[in-house]
Nucleic acid binder design. Structure first.
Length: 194
DNA sequence: AATTTGTACAACCGCATTTTC
DNA sequence: TGAAAATGCGGTTGTACAAAT
């Protein structure tokens, strides 16, 4: 027997929040505080899941949420923090007053990743991207800079072998992996060495 | 002007962790 | 002390809008 759902899905709204829903949520939390999220929707007269309300409040409605552009200095800080903490968005958020984990995560995935790739750095490991020298490899620098993330790079380098099967095992991909451990780097190695 | 492609961001989902009983 | 419930977190998807063709 599985775990019961967090809410009655048949009776909840989904998708974008309407203005009146936002207003209901704000006025309820102003009056009662951020109490129990599970019971909040019913008490506030919202046809939403509690998790949904929490996300909406934390990411968009909270009065101390600073929304808008990140400065260049903040960009660099995010990159540094990501290098130290990895994808721990809530920890990064804690060191960037006003930002939210979701916003930082989105900003990372859409903007900063590309910035790092443009500098020839792997967004996960923050190390230079090493190009491979396998005889059948046709990976060019432009392929790497076009790739959105390390997973895409892994796809790019995972070319078929002569016999039509998966690639051979003599690929020498020097990623110089060292602690801290980065799972994505392992994926890259695993994909290229099958 | 219409269509395609790329980008940014809001929101959902599932799993992990913490809390409660 | 263990199970169930509640909450938190991170990955991923959907979609609106802008830019390019």
């Amino acid at each position: 027997m599985g775990r019961s759902p967090c809410c009655e899905k048949a009776h909840t709204n989904k998708g974008a929040w309407r203005k009146e829903e936002d207003e209901k949520l704000i006025s309820y939390i102003k009056a009662h505080g951020e109490g129990c999220w599970r019971s909040l929707p019913k008490a506030a007269g919202l046809l939403r899941c509690g998790k949904n309300c929490r996300l909406r409040w934390i990411n968009y409605l909270r009065p101390d949420v600073k929304r808008g552009n990140f400065t260049a200095a903040e960009d660099e800080l995010i990159i540094k923090l990501h290098g130290l903490l990895g994808n721990k968005w809530s920890l990064i958020e804690g060191r960037l007053p006003g930002g939210t984990d979701n916003e930082i995560k989105n900003y990372w995935n859409t903007t900063i990743k590309r910035k790092l790739l443009g500098r020839g750095l792997d967004p996960q490991t923050h190390r230079p991207i090493e190009l491979i020298t396998h005889p059948f490899a046709t990976l060019k620098q432009q392929d790497v800079s076009m790739a959105q993330d390390s997973t895409t790079v892994a796809k790019v380098v995972n070319f078929p072998s002569d016999d039509g099967g998966s690639s051979s095992t003599d690929l020498n991909l020097d990623l110089s992996i060292s602690p801290p451990y980065h799972p994505s780097a392992e994926v890259l190695v695993a994909t290229t060495s099958q």
